[in-house]
Amino acid sequence: MKTLKNHIKLVFPSHSENEGLARLAVSGFLAAEGADVSVIAELKTAVSEGVTNAIVHGYRNTHGLVTLEIKLFDSGRAKILIKDKGAGIEDITKAMEPLFTTAPEEERAGLGFAIMQSFCDKLRVRSAPGKGTTLTLEKYIYKR
């Protein structure tokens, strides 16, 4: 990974209309770096899932700030961090099971993590109940 080539950081309140803003930031940043179009589409979807999780679950019944950070390295790998200081996840393994959701009444499909895993090369989840969650998504952004 080594040298950082470019980097942005976006901090926004946990309003659901900002899900679109987060996607725009990702696609704008990656397009300017010449990323592959299908990679941009995949990362847009993965970020949409991560940011939605922060808003729907992290800040459930409350509000707070969501941080989206994109780091691009010389190697062509992008590292995307999505951070919240919300509720945190009690059982990460359970939360990552496909179709598991704590919000069925809102018609959440329980597929957020499955989609992030499938659309990224690597996904790391760090979370502590009451402290918040940090997702780290990694993906090579150019045509292979």
């Binding site: 979807t45 018609e107 959440r108 329980g110 957020g112």
Partner: peptide, 13 residues
């Protein structure tokens, strides 16, 4: 023009 798992939730619902 764009869909994430929310669209899946909509279909399943």
């Amino acid at each position: 023009t764009f869909m994430d798992s929310s669209g899946i939730g909509l279909v399943m619902g």
